[in-house]
Each structure stands twice: as structure tokens, then as C-alpha cells.
Amino acid sequence: MRLYLVTLKSTDSVTSGFLPAAAALGWDVTILTDRPEDYPGQDCLRTDVLDVRALVDTVARHHPPDVIFSNSDHAQAETALAAAYFGLPGKDWRACLSTKNKALTRRALAAAGVETVRSVRLAPGDPLPPWPGPVVVKPREGVASEDVILARDPGEFQRAVAAVRDRRPGQTLVAEEYLEGPLYTLETLGDGRDLRVLGGYRTTLGPLPYFVEERLDWAPELPGREHVLAALAALGVGLGACHTEYVLTDAGPRIIEVNYRVIGDNCDFLLADLLGVPLFEWILRVHAGEPAPVPPPGTGHGAAVSLVADRSGVIVAGPPEQAGESGGLRLWHHALRAVGDRVELTRTNRDYLGLLRVIAADQAAVDDAVDKFRKEQPWLLS
């Protein structure tokens, strides 16, 4: 079985998730990337992964493909079209576009009668519409909470748009009504016929006006689940993993965004451990045309905690990589930075210093373990 894995920058999901999963399945892997230096020791072909013509041409002059797959936010539509060219299982390229483009997401959900959220597309140079209440400004195709800002009044709205346009010249933005309420995720896996719910998380954000995810707690109950599934059906989400963020507002559930790939920031590894399944193998296998397995219910409680810099500075101390189990408690820490690194605060997910995962029999034990780790092994900046 020959897998072509389409990717841009290196991520834990790829290097510690999908590549080991492909090896466990006995598949041959060729990485298609514009950054082969990020994948030492791997069979890589340098390719413009954001150009479907380049993807098709590169694959066609290499080994015959059995699976063409990507977990990249930015290359889903191109990968889907390349898979279709070779007659392989793949996502609907229209669904990939509609989920990645936040303006198209709002349009599709409104047209299907699933939900209506006030949203305005702001192309470069477009004047700002009148907006008296709280509004969220974000890049139309952004990731990692970059340049997502809450503006509470017209003056803040104008300044937020000007600041983002200054950092992203030529890019289209979206302004949306601020959706207030508890924030959840729904994690799904589909095979093009059945869509399985794997589970979900309750999300804790850092202080507004920014939207940095600081902690995700396993949520045995997922209020609003059926609304989210209706939204995914309207968007055409079917094959593969999907990570959806939504809010329980006073008016009912509302979609924040749909990410047509597996959840990241080590929450994918936490999900696999909570379910006790080879999640990354499952995802690859549905892209090979196999049916999606029925997931077992999650056992225990778990949390993924992002250890976030609160200011700029130089790292003078930080906890090492570690994994351990004691008395039914499992804990992992993945260091994203190193002592001596200079940190420039961005108010995005790029401010993460480390990722902590904890699984225990009850929520109190999870909370205690997180608090103890933070106290005894802090990241320190000078």
C-alpha cells in the first residue's frame, strides 16, 4: 500500500501520529511537501502542495498511489482533487473549501437553514459596515487563533481591522457577531457513508479580546451534538477526521469553525488514549476505503493543557519531555520550546511553551495533577 502524505510544516500529528501509524500498517510512505528538510530520513518529494497540478504531476511520475491524504489545514482541497484525479477515496473538494473559508461556512449553513450568524466578508479596501455591538475580526482562512480579536465597540472594530490588515496585506477578513457561551468541540470520523462521533471537549480560553485555547477537558456529555452533525451534513463533511468548534449560546448551538482534519495540539493523542484505539490508523484506513469503526465510549477523565507564555522574554527554565503512570494517573508533557529561546508574545497558539496531557479516574484527580505540575515544574521567563 503506497501512501502519499501531503504536508507543509512538520507537526506532532504527522511525525508522532500518522507516520508511525502508516508504519504500523506496513504501508510505504512518500511525503509530498515544500519543506523536505523538515522530514529527515523520510522519502520526500519537494512539491508545491498548494497547487493541485503540481501534486498530480509529482505523483504521476512516481509510484502508483493507493492513498493520497493530508492533515494540513491549508492543503485539503488540493489533496481531495488529487485523490479524485487518481480515482482514490477522498474528501469532497467543495466541502474542503466550504470549511476552510469561514465566509463560505456561514453562507452554506444559512442556505441550508441550519443556523444564521451575522457575518460580513471584508476584502482588502472594503469599508467597514456599521456594527454597534461586540464583533469578532478574523482572517477568512486563518489558523491557530492568529489575528482573531474581539472588538466591543465601533472604535475597537476599526482599530482591530486596521491592525490585522496591516499584518496581512491583501488578505480577506471576516467580521462576525460575538457568540457568547460555553465552548465545545465535536470530534468525528467518517468513511463517506457513516459519520462516527468520537467524542469532544469543553474548551477554556485565555483572557479576551484574544481567543487562545488554554485547556480542553474531555466532555462525556456533548450538548448541541445533533446541531453540529446537521451542520457537518450541510457542509458536505463525510470522509476522514473533522474537528468542529461550537458555542452554546442563549439562542442555541452555533458553529465557530469547522476544521476538516483531526484535532491538534496533542488533543488527538489524548483522544486516542481516552478511547483506547489506534486513532491515526483508523483515519488512514478510511482514506484507503475501509469502513469507519464504531468507537468505544471514552473511559476516565482527561485534559489537555497548553502552558502559555504570559509575556515576552527569554526562557530560563522549563520542564523536560516526560511520560509516566502512577496509581491510575497518566501524565505526558511535550516541550515546544527550550531553555534559551526568546519568546515574543503573539496572543495566539504560537505562545505555547509546552503541552500537558493528563488522564485519571475522576475530574478531581485530573485537576490536582495539573495544579501540581504547574506548581512544581513551571516554565520561567526572564
Rank of each mutant, 00 (worst) to 15 (best):
M1H: 03
L3W: 01
Y4F: 04
L8F: 12
T11R: 12
T15M: 08
G17S: 09
A21L: 02
A22W: 06
A24I: 10
G26S: 07
D28V: 13
D28L: 02
T30Q: 10
L32W: 12
P36Q: 03
E37R: 15
P40W: 15
Q42P: 11
Q42C: 15
C44W: 12
C44Y: 00
D48T: 12
L50Y: 09
L55T: 07
R61G: 11
R61P: 05
F69P: 03
S70P: 06
D73Y: 07
A75E: 06
A80H: 01
A83R: 07
F86K: 09
F86L: 10
R94S: 10
A95Q: 09
A95I: 04
T105E: 05
R107D: 09
R107C: 11
G113L: 11
E115R: 07
V120I: 01
R121E: 15
P130Y: 08
P134M: 15
P134L: 15
K138M: 03
P139M: 09
P139G: 07
R140Q: 07
V143A: 08
A144M: 11
S145A: 11
L150E: 06
D153T: 05
G155C: 10
E156T: 05
F157N: 03
A160H: 02
A160P: 03
A162L: 01
A162M: 05
R165H: 09
D166S: 14
D166E: 14
R167N: 06
L173V: 10
E177G: 14
Y184A: 03
L189R: 02
D191R: 06
R193D: 13
D194I: 13
L195P: 08
R196Q: 14
V197S: 00
Y201G: 00
Y201L: 11
R202V: 06
T203F: 13
L208Q: 13
F211W: 03
R215C: 15
D217T: 08
A219P: 04
P220K: 03
L222W: 04
L222N: 01
P223D: 00
R225L: 00
H227D: 05
V228T: 01
L229I: 06
A230C: 10
A231R: 00
G238S: 11
T244Y: 00
V247H: 02
T249W: 03
R254C: 02
R254N: 06
I256D: 07
I256S: 08
V258L: 01
F269A: 12
L270Q: 03
L275K: 01
H287Y: 13
H287F: 14
E290V: 07
E290S: 09
E290W: 14
P291C: 04
P291F: 11
P293F: 04
P296G: 04
T299G: 08
G300C: 04
S312F: 13
S312E: 07
G313Q: 11
I315G: 05
I315S: 05
I315Q: 06
A317N: 09
A317S: 15
P319M: 07
P319H: 04
A323R: 14
G324M: 02
E325L: 14
G327F: 05
H333P: 10
H334V: 14
H334W: 12
A338K: 13
V339E: 09
E344S: 14
L345S: 08
T348R: 03
D351M: 06
D351V: 07
L353Q: 02
L353D: 04
L355I: 15
A360F: 00
D362F: 08
V366K: 04
R374V: 15
L380M: 04
L381A: 07
S382L: 11
